[in-house]
C-alpha cells in the first residue's frame, strides 16, 4: 500500500516533467513525431499492399482451370472416355465434360441470336473437358501431360503468368518496403534519441541535484523514457490516422471502377495492422530514448 502511494506521487511528478520537456523542445518533437509517422506510414502502406496482392493472387489462383479441347473428329464417346483418364492424373481435383452442343448453347446465350443465324446447323465447337487442379503451381506440367493424350487438340489455361508477375511484384514491394522502413525507422529512432539527449542536456542541473538528494536511477530515467514512448506513440497515431482515411478513400474509389478486385477491407485486419503500427511506434520511442539515457545519463 505504501509503495503504491509512493509510486503514485512519483508518477505525478514524472508526468509533470514529461509535460514540461515536451513543451520545451516543440520543434524537435515535431520532427521526431513526423519522422516516426512517415516511417510507420510507409510500413503500413507496405503491409496493406502485401496483404492485398496476396488476396488478389489467392482469388485468381483459385480460379485457375484448364480447358481441354478435343480434336474435331473425335467421337463423343471417345471424348467422354478421356475424362476419367484425365481425372487420374495426379494434381487434378475435378473434371467436367462439356459436350459441344452445350458449349454452343451457352455461347449463343451469351452472344445472342445473331450467332445462331450465322452458324446455322453447323457446330464449330469441339467437345471439351474442364479440369480443376488443386495446386496452381503445377498447372504447367499437368497441362503438358494432358496435351500429350491422344485425341486432345489443345489445352488452354489462364491466370498463371499474371499470378507469377503479381508474386514477383509483391516480393519487390517487400524488399523495397523493408529497406525504406528500416531506413526511416532508424531516422525516427535517431531523432527520438536526439530529442531525449537535448532534454537530458536541458535538465542536467536538475539531474545532478536529483542525484545528490537521493533519487533512484529509475526515478531519474522514467521521464526521458516516457517522453520517447509518447513521441513514438503520437508518431504512430498520426500514421494510423492518415492511413485509415486515405486507405478508406482509395478503397471506395477503386471499388467504384474495378468492382471485381478483391480488396481487403475487413475492420479486423485493419485494426490488427493499426495495433501493430502503434506497438512498433512505442517500441521505436522506447529504443530511441533508451539509447540516449544509457549514453548520456550517468546516474
Amino acid at each position: 500500500m505504501y509503495m503504491k502511494m509512493l509510486l503514485l506521487r512519483q508518477a505525478y511528478y514524472i508526468f509533470q516533467e514529461v509535460g514540461r520537456s515536451l513543451k520545451r523542445n516543440s520543434l524537435l518533437n515535431f520532427a521526431a513525431v513526423g519522422t516516426t509517422a512517415i516511417s510507420l506510414f510507409v510500413l503500413g502502406v507496405g503491409m496493406l499492399l502485401v496483404i492485398n496482392t496476396n488476396e488478389i493472387a489467392k482469388t485468381i489462383e483459385s480460379d485457375i482451370e484448364i480447358m481441354v479441347y478435343m480434336r474435331h473428329d473425335l467421337a463423343e464417346e471417345d471424348a467422354i472416355a478421356l475424362e476419367p483418364v484425365i481425372g487420374r492424373i495426379s494434381g487434378v481435383k475435378e473434371t467436367t465434360f462439356i459436350p459441344r452442343d452445350e458449349a454452343l448453347k451457352s455461347l449463343v446465350k451469351r452472344l445472342g441470336d445473331e450467332l445462331d443465324e450465322s452458324v446455322g446447323e453447323q457446330n464449330p465447337l469441339p467437345d471439351a473437358i474442364k479440369v480443376e487442379i488443386s495446386d496452381p503451381h503445377e498447372v504447367n506440367t499437368i497441362a503438358a501431360e494432358i496435351e500429350d493424350l491422344p485425341g486432345v487438340e489443345s489445352v488452354r489455361y489462364g491466370g498463371q503468368d499474371f499470378v507469377k508477375k503479381l508474386f514477383s511484384l509483391t516480393n519487390w514491394v517487400r524488399i523495397i518496403g523493408l529497406l525504406l522502413i528500416t531506413l526511416l525507422g532508424l531516422c525516427g529512432i535517431f531523432l527520438i534519441a536526439t530529442t531525449t539527449r537535448l532534454t537530458i542536456f536541458a535538465r542536467r542541473r536538475e539531474i545532478n541535484i536529483m542525484k545528490y538528494v537521493g533519487a533512484t536511477d529509475w526515478f531519474v530515467r522514467w521521464p526521458f523514457l516516457l517522453e520517447g514512448i509518447i513521441l513514438g506513440f503520437f508518431g504512430a497515431l498520426l500514421a494510423v490516422g492518415v492511413l485509415y482515411f486515405s486507405y478508406g478513400a482509395l478503397i471506395a474509389k477503386i471499388q467504384e471502377t474495378i468492382t471485381f478486385l478483391p480488396l481487403v477491407n475487413s475492420t479486423l485486419v485493419l485494426l490488427r495492422i493499426f495495433q501493430g503500427l502503434l506497438a512498433v511506434g512505442v517500441v521505436m520511442g522506447a529504443v530511441g530514448s533508451t539509447i540516449s539515457v544509457r549514453r548520456y545519463l550517468r546516474v
Binding site: L7, R9, Q10, Y13, I209, M210, V213, G214, F219
Partner: peptide, 11 residues
C-alpha cells in the same frame, strides 16, 4: 520541495 518530491514525500 524538489528534494522531497524526488524521494516521493506526501504533498
Amino acid at each position: 520541495a524538489f528534494a522531497m518530491q524526488v524521494v516521493g514525500a506526501r504533498r
